[in-house]
Nucleic acid binder design. Structure first.
Ligand SMILES: [Zn+2]
Ligand SMILES: [Zn+2]
Ligand SMILES: [Zn+2]
Ligand SMILES: [Zn+2]
Lengths: 166, 166
DNA sequence: AGAATTAAGGTTATAGTGTAACATAATGTC
DNA sequence: GACATTATGTTACACTATAACCTTAATTCT
């Protein structure tokens, strides 16, 4: 799991990409599912940044990279596969997709989303998970999945905002 | 705030509707904003059930009720107003809207959504709110808003499922 | 290896969701 | 009533996602 501080500040992002691709290959191999070149290419495009990207943006990037036209179903099918295998998540409030840094551990989609720089990072909190389970149980609700999307400002954008206001 | 048990079982739903309309009128009056007949009509349609409804469904209901054609911007503008005033919420994972039973108290959008009967009810948990604030603070993230969408089975659908499997 | 089967991707068309831009009507202010 | 403001009507379009059908590639089974 990457920290928010890392994702929204300067870092060697090549490592993020190669780590994601490598663990995806291993994971797919272990599960006996096929990480085809198209799927890998889409995963790599998703990982170009820590910002969620829309399907049509990915489609354009794909078209640009391969000098051939790409139609929506092509990218959506790849995205469906990646979602299914937990290699990416979908941010519902943005209609956008982002790479998962820890696809081997099954987990729910919980995100911090900076409304200034658009960076989104996963939030992992056992206390938060427990709060959800408890709250649902109080209502007699049986939980199968949940998503949390928290909007606000990442540390670097808070710093910029403070400078501005001085 | 309605309980989940009430919303997903038989109850006098007329009360839900009239309560919602009455408090909306009062709230808009106090705030000096106009609950026009169109806005009130959309609010009433949203409250026809405890299930989130899409904008186009509402548009069709509106057209059917008023024997005149209604275009998307008409319903979206009414929905925007109702969202702005906190009279309804948007369920991002469903692209749908649902009435808020407690619009006078400002709060975030936290929902339990039954994947069987589609009923969605708000979840109010101070512990959950605190968990979010704490988890975000740990990352140095400054929160402005958040939404939680929990999918699963409501009590009555759990009961039905148990019967089925016997 | 060759045939049968399955999985993945290509292609076209269309469904579903949401807005921009501009015109008209209603409301509020002086 | 003149004027500014707000709300709604209208048309056209942008963005997001899927259905249906066909072709190609990979896997499986003799
Ligand atoms: Zn990175
Ligand atoms: Zn930021
Ligand atoms: Zn009710
Ligand atoms: Zn149910």
């Amino acid at each position: 799991m990457y920290t928010l501080a890392k994702a929204c500040s300067h870092h060697n992002h090549g490592h993020c990409i190669s780590d994601a691709i490598n663990s995806a290959r291993q994971l797919c191999d272990e599960r006996g599912v096929r990480l085809t070149s198209l799927r890998e290419q889409v995963l790599e495009l998703v990982w170009q940044s820590h910002k969620p990207l829309g399907a049509y943006t990915l489609m354009d990037m794909l078209a640009e990279a391969s000098t051939r036209r790409v139609a929506p179903p092509t990218v959506y099918r790849a995205l469906d596969f990646l979602l299914e295998e937990g290699l990416i998540h979908r941010i519902n409030s943005l209609n956008a997709f982002i790479g998962c840094p820890s696809p081997t551990q099954k987990h729910q989609s919980h995100f911090l989303i900076c409304q200034n720089c658009s960076v989104a990072v996963e939030l992992e909190s056992q206390a938060l998970n427990q709060s959800i389970i408890d709250a649902a149980a109080d209502s007699g609700f049986s939980v199968t999945s949940h998503s949390i999307e928290i909007n606000g400002l990442c540390p670097s954008c808070q710093a910029s905002a403070n400078k501005e206001s001085k």
